[in-house]
Write a protein that binds this DNA or RNA. Structure first.
Lengths: 367, 367
DNA sequence: CTGTTAGCGCTTTCAA
DNA sequence: TTGAAAGCGCTAACAG
């Protein structure tokens, strides 16, 4: 009964375990056949009470517990499907440090609930943080990649999941099957929103490394230029690093650089992601710039803080719940027909208008 | 290759699946022994390239994928531990509708990360919402109950997890092993905080159905009475239902009832949970009652909104990350020694002072 | 009510 | 580099 060394587990950081008591051990000690012992746990009614109690007593004393893997495996006589596990990969940081609101958590939990209803279990992993445990998680029937993925990590994941359908969520087109918000539409809607209110000078804050953000910005610029060729757009890159403190410091510098002494403000700002929006809003508030009095504000995503400001902030958003549910539906399809051809689903976005961008009268329009 | 009906799965809402291609099928078609085919996937280097490619080709064509359960089961020759799965149960609602901040999500993700490092996987369930899928999730090596649990659901869970260690998190003493915040200390700290600032008339808002909240309130009253026997405490029950809209409506009524025409305000309010705190704060703000000018405010937990108000709000909190990590450590112990005796761990709480309770000069103290 | 037999799909071991 | 034999722990099917 000593601990066992299994090199291939050691390598993955799995500690050695003591051997378990098996059903045979129990049966032997209880002087019954393994089958009877098995019945005690699978179908107690069919075992005479005296026998059952004896078996249970022995089992308890020996610390017996059914081995799920063996159990499921044996049931495959009747062709029980084997695994029914889906690997859901997301950077833990994105789950653990929901900077302004728990977007990816919500995607995950909605996915989880929907897929469980279909009879599947989920194992959450983070290839990037811990490739070993990702590998250790074993095979899955499908792999969902949620949010940003590092290139190297993507490689590991794809190799591990070879032969398995892979679905990318809010990650851009890194896999054959993807679900993304309709970023182009989001950007265009923003342009229309400002234009309808006569705003002709808008600062766009975006993170150049995030594909979704770039798409939003690009579509925004294209649409605004089409609507109002003379409109002025200041595209301000605002890096989102993986270190929050650093991100905040960078933002501070960027914002000071852009706004300068706050002399000539743009008509409005359009911030294409919620964390940056929060930073921009704080920056302006701290310096006494009134929103929407002095400057219009349009954010992205839908964290609670947009609603808690003195004047609630308009924003464009898409529902994380919809992402999760759509993902579950899509995974179900891929599970049925693993060879489905590549497909990119765009989720509709919508605008919540809180009048944080005031209409300008023609006379007061900026040059 | 037709779909199969398995009554015991049907009952749990699991759809029938098609039989899978097995390693033997592949081996036969590729004209190699099952062993060689096995090596192609377990240890490719050891198979001659030509053979390997042939096997892979056939496997691809037949849509073969390794059966995890069989694989793990067979490895037990060397006495590999069996399952390594922990059931983590939490009401989906609590995960999906983080009213003001994602407390339980954070507990879960922290637990997950810590327990994965130890080589365990996690399956998330909600007995209450879906007992069937809970049962269907299979056996686990331990069960963690997180947050409120309904009595009946608790029964199902306990029966299902018979023989397995059960750990309750922030749920009160519903299981032999528990981890809870030190609510008594939290309440006492609140009392000391108000007393040190000369506040002698405090309204406590709490949810009578939540054990943690009641503990906080009780400890608060006891301690304040001990410090200042003449202090006046208004205990205001504020129900947290599972329907958010209803909760908000009830809160509105309760608050109107308590504050009336806002004539005689208490010195301070102490709200023992974050969602209620949010509601109380909004109520006061909407009616132009200034915090902390006209009324002091002490909240509980640590959602971001406490920091976003004009004057940040003081609060007592404990770290959800600590709950998750402590839980992982405790589960690890229970896994080693399943027969450990019952144990209740109290997590330290601390106070973040944002001066949202102003010191009263003796002359201005209320009666 | 209980036992016997056979077998789940894969892998270890050992021999060729 | 490959294969044959044996076995993982449990359970379906069928007998008694």
């Amino acid at each position: 009964m000593t601990a066992i060394e299994k090199p291939h587990l050691r390598a993955h950081g799995v500690p050695p375990l003591k051997p378990r008591t098996s059903l045979n051990d129990v049966a032997r000690k209880a002087k019954v056949s393994p089958m009877t012992a098995s019945r005690v746990f699978a179908d107690p009614e069919r075992v005479k009470e005296a026998t059952r109690l004896r078996v249970l007593e022995v089992a308890g004393r020996l610390g017996y517990r059914k081995d799920l893997y063996a159990s499921i495996n044996s049931k495959k006589r009747g062709r029980l499907p084997a695994d029914r596990t889906i690997l859901f990969n997301c950077r833990f940081e994105q789950l653990l440090e929901p900077s302004t609101f728990p977007f990816f958590s919500l995607v995950y939990f909605h996915f989880l609930r929907a897929i469980m209803k279909r009879g599947w279990r989920t194992v959450l992993t983070d290839v990037e943080a811990d490739p070993a445990s990702f590998v250790n998680a074993g095979a899955g029937d499908a792999l969902v990649l949620c949010g940003d993925v590092d290139g190297a990590a993507l490689g590991v994941a794809e190799r591990q999941a070879a032969g398995t359908p892979i679905l990318a969520l809010c990650a851009g087109p890194v896999a054959p099957h993807t679900i993304d918000p309709d970023d182009a539409r989001g950007g265009a809607m923003a342009a229309e929103y400002f234009h309808a209110r006569g705003h002709r000078h808008v600062a766009v804050f975006f993170s150049p490394k995030n594909r979704n953000h770039v798409d939003r910005r690009t579509a925004f610029e294209d649409r605004l230029a089409a609507l109002d060729p003379a409109a002025r757009i200041d595209a301000v890159p605002m890096d989102l690093t993986r270190d929050r403190v650093r991100t905040d410091a960078l933002a501070e510098a960027t914002l000071s650089g852009y706004f300068g002494d706050l002399g000539a403000l743009p008509d409005s700002v359009f911030v294409v992601n919620s964390y940056s929006a929060h930073l921009v809003w704080r920056y302006l508030r701290k310096r006494g710039v009134s929103v929407p009095g002095q400057i219009g504000f349009l954010g992205y995503d839908n964290p609670p803080f947009y609603q808690e400001t003195e004047v609630p902030l308009s924003r464009i958003w898409f529902d994380p719940g919809a992402v999760g549910q759509e993902a579950a539906a899509r995974v179900a399809v891929l599970l049925e027909k693993p060879a489905s051809r590549p497909n990119r689903i765009l989720l509709p976005v919508s605008l919540i208008d809180c009048a944080s961008v005031l209409p300008k009268t023609p006379g007061t329009q900026s040059a």
